[in-house]
Simulated scan of single mutants.
Amino acid sequence: MKYQGINLENVKLSNRSSILLLLNNSGAMSRKDIAETVGLTAASVTLICSELMEEGLIVELGEANEEKRAGRKKILVDINPGYRSVLCIAIESDVTYIAVTDMKGKVLCNTSLPTDKEIDPEEFFKNITDECQKLFWKNGIVKEKVLGAAVTIPGSVDRKNGVSLNSYNIWTESIPVASYIKKELGIPVVVENNLKAYAQTEIYFGLGRTVNNLFVLKWGPGVGASIIIDGKIYQGSNKMAAEIGHMIAIKDGRDCNCKRKGCLETYVSTKAIKQELKSVFGKNVDSVFNSELFDNPKASDIIDDKIDMLARNIRNVITMLDPKNVVLIGYMFEISGCVERFIKAYKQYDPLVSDDFFVRSTLSESIDHTEGLAVFLNEVLLTQN
């Protein structure tokens, strides 16, 4: 076989990514410590750091605080949060969140608007870009300093072409999302499935920085998941891995937007739950569906039934994947008492599970505004996919 040689440019990008990822995960470090950690020569690290500093991606922070010792003091470098900003657009079935973040996930400004499923998709995305322009103007965001936009949306996505193929509860046809956004804003656009975006955020800013094998479970308004193996998101051959909301929970059950019957989501989504609660509480269902949900015995019985169904199906998934932890995220897990009831229900099917197996995401409060940043970093700056 003919020897093809080494692509030096790819090696350089890989080394650059390794350094940026290390700084992202560990914070400020000296060049010497970076070299020892990533396994590069001090000269190589110094060269790459110099290039990154020239670009503005990293900055020097001054001398490290350490005990007195002979020789040159260590100078710390870190990712420059003010290098550029990233526009994050998270489209959920009921609300669309818009935020501008710095390079470390700090939200600089944000807004939201209802996800209008009744109007033409192109008109809806025009409404989104109008809101983005207003957000830039009100907060002094210079568009030339915006690195790009990341759009996250439920359902299957063609990342290469920036197309939402089927968002189920929003639109069933293919939508050229990236084209709509780029046409109005003139910046690079990355489009990703929202669950994979959650997982990517967990990898870069959450538990995934220290744990390589995770299962990320989101509950509310739908139910979905992502699988992280060896620090990377498992996609599947058709990019549809971990669509647990479309596991068949009931044979010949309710019709689902995915054209199948009996999918888990048709029973445990917030929409499905509210429909059952409505049969008991009528028009007052929204007043019941809050932090005091479990204080009402009738409502509690309905929710506990859904929790049991979800826990049973998750147990089957965990049997196959064997992750280190399950990360819980989403509106339903924010309801007081819901996490505890879910874990209790799960233990009925696996009494040997450890108490620390399920972990509430530390990113819950900000993830709707910041998930796009992780997607954009993964696509453009860090892994150079």
Rank of each mutant, 00 (worst) to 15 (best):
V211C: 01
P351I: 01
N169H: 14
E131Y: 02
C338D: 00
I98H: 00
N80E: 04
D33G: 00
I175F: 01
I98E: 02
N10H: 06
L165I: 15
K344E: 12
A35T: 08
L8I: 12
R84S: 07
E292T: 09
I335Y: 13
E334Q: 13
H246W: 02
K126G: 07
V268Q: 04
P81F: 03
I203C: 01
S237W: 02
L47W: 06
A241G: 02
L147D: 08
A42Y: 11
C109L: 01
R341C: 13
A242I: 05
L135M: 10
N110A: 14
L20E: 11
Y346P: 02
T270H: 08
N378W: 01
C132M: 01
N257I: 03
A70K: 14
D301Q: 11
N385E: 14
A70G: 08
W219D: 07
E192H: 00
P154H: 08
T129I: 09
V353D: 05
Q4T: 14
E340D: 02
E340L: 00
C132R: 01
P81N: 06
P351C: 03
L40M: 15
E379S: 14
S364H: 10
M247E: 10
T370M: 15
K73M: 14
M320K: 10
P176L: 03
A99R: 07
E36I: 02
G27S: 04
